[in-house]
Amino acid sequence: MSSDTRIIPLRVVNKTAYIWDVDDIAIVRSKHRICGILVGTLPHLSQQNVFLGVPLVLMPEEAALLVNIGAAVFVDDPNAHRNPTIPQLEAWSAEQRDLARSQIELTETKTAKESANPTRAMSEDALRKRREREERKKAKAAEVAAQQAAAASGSGETELNPSLLLGAPLMSKPETIHTPPTDPLTPSSSELSKSASTPYTIVIPASAASQPWYNASSCTYKTIESARAAGVWDFPATLSDRARSGVFHDLWKQGYFMGGGIKFGGEYLVYPGDPLRYHSHFSASVVESPIASLRPMEIVAHGRLGTATKKAHLLCGWDDEKQEVSYLSIEWAGFG
């Protein structure tokens, strides 16, 4: 976190705002009281139902609020990915190759070290078995070599084949780097024969923003209006959107944290502090107008549900003309 005042890019895809950078996630949570929901997978966890990884998805209210207070900008993510130029591509594949090579070298030194003092890990018996196995293999190889020598005297082409096969993909298709068996690392055939069988990991960066062809300068929007004009973002569009946005902003301004509240029959769960530290005190539902009708059944439902989960239900009435919110809380009072 070099500076906490930096403006956070919200990457918008299909009118949903995501944050991919862990530092950005920390900033919006600690500084701006915006939690969002992590939706990415965490590959090392067997159950992917409680803790998840990047990206962080923001509710439209959260994203709109961040942009409105000037803490974030919208980035039209699909358009920020330009077509890479040839040099960029070459640089990228060179980088990939270097990465692969360094990995292979690492594995090789490791295996070399292991084979240098193999006794460390093996018992007497295993060593004896291995020796026998190697001897058998050697005998067999000698036999095959004798046969091949007999065949080669016939045609004489076989020696050239490996380098031809492995060299060809490098020229025609640089992206075949993804398939390690036909790996185009170096033309040296001795190294190739070894590295072709050595597995390595291909790293795909979670965020594409560091790629040289990622350029968000022409598709970054500092206001909701400009993003709306560009067709990137359209929340809040309707009265119900405006009401939700207004209520969210008003609660946020009072220092609350908000999370999704559909589980408890509301729009938001309202926490007095970070949701990791506190239980929510309210479940809030948004009423679109101060004169909107409210069915008695809703009062019953919200009263019951809130009280059973030790929350008061908050009815948040949005006045679109005055841009104001009025609050009313419901609690169940059973007699007896």
């Binding site: 589980k263 029959g265 509301g266 439902a301 549900l305």
Partner: peptide, 11 residues
């Protein structure tokens, strides 16, 4: 709304 269904079902 789904939220209403979930509310009454939960209650």
């Amino acid at each position: 709304a789904w939220s209403w269904l979930s509310t009454i079902n939960r209650v």
